[in-house]
Design a protein around this nucleic acid. Structure first.
Length: 563
RNA sequence: AGUCCCAUGGUGUAAUGGUAGCACCGCAGCUUUUGGAGCUGCUUGUCUAGGUUCGAAUCCUGGUGGGACUGCCA
């Protein structure tokens, strides 16, 4: 059992840096931000960043902003803005009144650009895309300076103003910082600050036709917001010298950028481009498909915010590439739901059982414990009668030697009820099992203490005439290899798990579930955790999603034996 | 190849010059009216070669291995 409580971040190198900054007085507070681009839904990797940024600020008594880095109108959309806000909230974090957009700063950013031009540190380049690319060179070889680099300040100012005023077409000119075309750091080879895009922005509409590049907008946005610690992923390490250059030339507040390694999960893909492809090409039903590694997918799948936070906070931060085992996430939700989820009985693949010595019209209301981990959750009544359903895989006609469940002539306990014995297997003309004829031992009623008979197995069941029909969606991993995008020669789509979803329409659940509400989570005893689907479940037809199975040592025995 | 970054069991992380610890996985056992949960035990690790030091996972140097950078994306 981990002694890391929720939201508490274990010691790590970022906290060491913050401690030092506070100690030497570089900053006297901690103010972080979570800066997504609204061009897709948040995924589990973002959850790590969210928990880190909000968690760190909380721990140091500071604040966290939510800021959308919306500098590319072509890819961004309000749908994504709304989904991101919902997901951050659902995870349990509050940006209060600090909801910002990089587009809020377009005017300031423009003024900053003018300042740079006036300092002789930025110029308008009228070269083509191809020329600029060619002149930039490659990392191991210096680039060459553009022939437009020597334009006068007046000329630059005039051209830039015209760019802003819409007097040019897309791509005709760009504004570039004047730094060093021979720098071994590509980001310092006169990076582009503004490009012309006659496109409608989701917030600024058609007010602008020049848009700042991310590199020009991001660091200054942090600065404008008074961010002290800009936590970002490793790929921006090489950008830090550039951000520092901007901040110093502009003489504005200087946040400290700290990079950490993004989280990858095995058996999943995380890039927004790939997730978008899964959605657009209908490999999944949407961004919130329960198989997606998105926050909304996990939410619909039945994950709790606590389980995701615990998962994120229990992992630490590093600077090397890491691939987390998905079993850790699965373990995290099991751990949470084990303590919280009400237990019920559900029979996924029913076979009928008739208790031949049970009175025909008798019904008993048996006591069932709602959660053995939490007595305060109480008990409920479960109806028991002559005709029952049990799960098909709890019966083996020719039992495996370690099989502790029902088979001909053998006894098994029905959970909360009686020990029964299988007397006869009734089959149809094709040899399929139609019904099991069993007898029950009246002295073995749960809690009665009349018999000290012991059996090795206990199985779940539902009363046939009381059970409710339900659809159950069994979700499994979306990919069947640990690293679906590991091989550049093979499309990740090839690695999709064809069995990632199995739909069962004839499942039977105990009557207690009649009033189960969308999103409500249960443990189906001996099977796993399931939640009521928030979109498709109705009063007439319950639909359950399997969140995760219980740990299954029987499956291991079976697997070992088949080898 | 140029610059930058990184390297602790299978995985993920601690140890901040002083006994390499924890969690997950795995294995064995106990317990159990969920083959769940819980409990106990076990296996497995400091990339490498030097140096500094009484003492190095930690500091220094070289090597090896991995990653990032060559969008008018973020």
């Amino acid at each position: 059992m981990s002694d890391i409580t929720e939201n508490e971040i274990p010691s790590n190198f970022i906290k060491d840096i913050i401690d030092e900054d506070l100690r030497i007085g570089r900053f006297n507070k901690v103010h972080t931000r979570f800066p997504p681009e609204p061009n897709g839904y948040l995924h589990i990797g973002h959850a790590k960043s969210i928990c880190l940024n909000f968690g760190l600020a909380e721990e140091y008594g500071g604040k966290t902003n939510l800021r959308f880095d919306d500098t590319n109108p072509a890819k961004e959309d309000v749908e994504y803005v709304e989904s991101i806000k919902e997901d951050v909230k659902w995870l349990g974090f509050d940006w209060e009144d600090r909801l910002y957009f990089a587009s809020d700063y377009f005017n300031t950013l423009y003024d900053y650009a003018i300042k740079l031009i006036k300092k002789g540190k930025a110029y308008v380049d009228s070269s083509t895309y191809e020329i600029i690319k060619e002149e930039r060179g490659v990392p191991s070889k210096p680039g060459v300076e553009s022939k437009y680099r020597t334009r006068t300040t007046e000329e630059n100012l005039e051209l830039f103003t015209k760019m802003k005023n819409g007097e040019f077409d897309d791509g005709e000119h760009v504004l570039r910082a004047m730094i060093d075309m021979t720098s071994p750091n590509m980001n310092l080879r006169d990076p582009i600050l503004y490009r012309i895009r006659h496109a409608e922005h989701h917030r600024t509409g058609n007010e602008w036709c020049i848009y700042p590049m991310y590199d020009w907008a991001h660091g200054q946005s942090d600065s404008i917001e008074g961010i002290t610690h800009s936590i970002c992923t490793l790929e921006f390490e090489n950008h830090r010298p550039l951000y520092n250059w901007f901040i110093e030339e502009l003489e504005i507040h200087h946040p400290r950028q700290i990079e950490f390694a993004r989280w990858n999960l095995d058996y999943t893909v995380m890039s927004k481009r790939k997730l978008l492809k899964l959605v657009e090409d209908n490999y999944v039903t949407g961004w919130d498909d329960p198989r997606m590694p998105t926050i909304s997918g996990y939410r619909r799948r039945g994950y709790t915010p606590e389980s995701i936070r615990n998962f994120a906070n229990s992992g630490g931060v590093a600077k090397r590439e890491i691939i987390i085992e998905i079993t850790r996430l699965e373990n995290s939700i099991r751990e949470d739901l084990n303590k919280k989820a009400m237990r019920v009985m559900a029979v996924l693949n029913p076979i009928k059982v008739e208790l031949t010595n049970y009175p025909i019209s008798q019904v008993e209301e048996l006591d069932a414990v709602n959660n053995p981990e939490d007595e305060s959750m109480g008990k409920r009544k479960v109806p028991f009668s002559r005709e029952l359903y049990i799960d098909a895989n709890d019966f083996q006609e020719i039992p495996h030697k370690k099989f502790h469940r029902l088979s001909p002539g053998k006894e098994v306990r029905l959970r909360y009820a009686y020990i029964i014995k299988c007397e006869e297997v009734i089959k149809d003309s094709e040899g399929n099992i139609e019904k099991l004829l069993c007898t029950y031992d009246i002295d073995t009623k749960s809690g009665s203490g009349k018999s000290d008979k012991k059996v090795k197995g206990t199985i779940h069941w539902v009363s046939a005439k009381h059970a409710l029909n339900a659809e159950v969606r069994l979700y499994d991993r979306l990919f069947n290899v640990p690293n679906p995008d590991g091989d550049k020669a093979v499309d990740f789509i090839e690695h999709l798990n064809p069995d990632s979803l199995e739909v069962l329409t004839n499942s039977m659940v105990e009557p207690y579930l009649k009033n189960a509400k969308p999103g409500e989570r249960f443990q189906f005893e001996r099977l796993g955790y399931y939640c009521v689907d928030s979109k498709d479940s109705t009063d007439e037809k319950l639909v359950f999603n399997r969140t995760v199975t219980l740990r299954d040592s029987w499956a291991k025995i079976e697997k070992q034996n088949s080898r």
